[in-house]
Design a protein around this nucleic acid. Structure first.
Lengths: 141, 141
DNA sequence: GTGGTTGCAAAGGTTTTGCATGTGC
DNA sequence: GCACATGCAAAACCTTTGCAACCAC
């Protein structure tokens, strides 16, 4: 499983350990169709591991974010969610209606980053940039 | 005071009332050099009005957001902050180090919005787009 | 006068922490 | 074996809600 390879790679590189819990959280995240919050993630993981701890979810998603395997999105007011993602630089298009997330590559923001740099001396943090709006389906509906 | 004019205008247009509390919150926000969270806002306002209610801060900032006089930023993990802003469309450059916020106008994102629309059918919500990174000062430091 | 607004206090929900137990390396 | 990771439960935190008193219109 590709996920597992990436996970072990990253964990070893960071001097962290591979545990069933970490695998389980990453798997739940990658197999989800949409971004998940901590509560949903806990529920998903508990279907396989009934005694999974609440705190472990919080600790693990933050670890995955640090490893570059997941990203945190502030999807809307008071709702923090996580999506699995490849370590390669890219950005997310987050639908505000249905919650779906699609990737869009780094290239589309390069011109923007240059403008902000030149005109304002502002160094854009690409890792913190995601886009909110309506996906094609929701827009036509 | 220009703030006050804009506030009364907007309140009346929305069928809302002008109260000292609403003025106070807007003033605290406009006079701040940086974005403020609810707690800081409460502290600031209480310097003038010691009995100011906590809930009123929450209710008021959300009102200001609805009126277009303020904007909510998810500045970082578990930190929601607000900045005063003009009703005209624009975006914010938020420094992740010092918390300063500067405006940048709508024009810089128009090309990006077009690309997302054409290539992905995605309708960008301009009101939800802000940029995080390092301001000029923090970058050189 | 009347309905919206406020302050207070309590409830609600989410995230974090402390610690004994378990486990990857 | 040892340090790190986990599960549990309680604490801490931020935000919302309910309601009586108040006040802008």
């Amino acid at each position: 499983m590709a996920d597992r390879h990436r996970l072990t790679d990253r964990l070893l590189a960071a001097g962290e350990r591979l545990t069933p819990q970490r695998e389980a959280v990453l798997r739940a995240l990658t197999s989800a169709q949409t971004a998940l919050g901590p509560g949903e993630l806990l529920a998903a993981v508990r279907r396989q591991h009934p005694h999974f701890g609440r705190a472990t979810v919080f600790r693990t998603v933050e670890l995955l974010v640090r490893l570059g395997l997941a990203q945190r999105l502030e999807q809307s007011h008071r709702r923090t969610v996580y999506v699995a993602c490849a370590p390669e630089h890219h950005h997310h298009l987050v639908c505000q209606r249905c919650g779906s997330v699609q990737d869009v590559d780094e290239g589309v923001v390069t011109p923007l980053a240059k403008v902000l740099q030149r005109a304002h001396g502002f160094a854009l943090d690409h890792g913190a940039l995601d886009f909110y709006g309506l996906c094609e389906d929701c827009r036509s509906a």
